[in-house]
Write a protein that binds this DNA or RNA. Structure first.
Lengths: 126, 126
DNA sequence: AATAAGTTTCAAGCTAACTTGAGAGTCAAG
DNA sequence: CTTGACTCTCAAGTTAGCTTGAAACTTATT
C-alpha cells in the first residue's frame, strides 16, 4: 500500500509518516519504480505500536530506543523505559495534586468577599 | 534597584525579566539617565506573583490576562482562569492515571517470562 | 587610563513533534 | 491530452518560554 492508504488506516497524515521515517522510527521502506513508498502490513503494525507508546507518554526519542537496528522490539529496553516513565508519571501526579490543592485554596480566597485584593500589592499609581 | 539585583532577589535571570517585560507581564519601568532599568519593590512583588502563578500551571498568556492595564489584578479574571485551570488539572490527572494503569499492565507483561514478544510483530527479515 | 562587571538592544537559537509550502514528477480516468 | 489526485524532496514555519550572542555603553575599582 502507498503512504496515503497507510495514513488513512492509521489516522496519521502522510507527512507524519514521512517524519517518523526520517526520525528513524520506521525502517526505510521499499519504493515503486516511480519512487513511491510501498508499505507492508508490518509498517502498519509498527505505527500502531508507536501510537500506543505515545499514548503512554513516551517521547519519539524514547520510542526509537525501544527498537533494535533490525526493527525488533528490545524487551529489556522497553522494561527500563517503562519503569522510568512510571516514575515520571508519579512525579507529575504529585505536581498536579499540589497544584490542585493550591488552586482550590486560591479559589476559596477569591470567593471570600471579605478579602478584596488577595495577593496583588501594586498600587494603581506606580 | 537595577535588573541584576532584582534577578538575584527573585531567582530569575536578567534576560527572563526583560523577556517578561517584553511580553507585557511587567509594566515598562523607569530608567536611569544611562538607560538602565530601575525597579521598585512592587516589581519584585509582581514577579513573585508571576512565579507563584507559574507554579500553579498558568501560562504566561493567561497570567498576562490576570492583570489590568493599570497593573492591578483582575479578581474575576483570576477566578475564571482558576476554574479553567482546575478543570485542566483534572483532565491531566485522568490522563496520567490511565497511563499509569497501562504502564503497570505493560510492565507485568514484560516481567512475565512466558511471553516472549508482547506487541512486536515485525519479523527480523523485512 | 584600563579593566571588569553590569547593562542596553536586537536578532537568532533551542526543544518537540510536527505542519506547511514550493516546485516537480506520477498515475488513472475521461 | 488534460485534469485531478497522489506522491516526491527539501526548506522553513509553528508554539512556549526562554537563552545565547554580538556589539556597544556605563559604572566602579585599581
Amino acid at each position: 500500500m502507498k503512504i496515503g492508504e497507510l495514513a488513512r488506516k492509521t489516522g496519521l497524515t502522510p507527512s507524519t509518516i514521512r517524519f517518523y521515517e526520517e526520525q528513524g522510527l520506521l525502517s526505510p521502506v521499499s519504493r515503486t519504480a516511480a519512487g513511491y513508498r510501498e508499505y507492508s502490513n508490518y509498517a502498519m503494525e509498527r505505527l500502531h505500536v508507536i501510537q500506543v507508546s505515545k499514548r503512554l507518554g513516551f517521547s519519539l526519542d524514547v520510542i526509537r530506543g525501544m527498537f533494535g537496528a533490525n526493527g525488533q522490539c528490545l524487551k529489556t529496553e522497553i522494561l527500563e523505559r517503562t519503569e522510568t516513565r512510571l516514575r515520571e508519571v508519579e512525579e507529575q501526579q504529585e505536581t498536579l495534586a499540589s497544584q490542585q490543592r493550591e488552586l482550590l485554596a486560591l479559589r476559596a480566597i477569591l470567593l471570600d468577599e471579605s478579602i478584596s485584593r488577595p495577593f496583588c500589592a501594586e498600587p494603581a499609581v506606580n
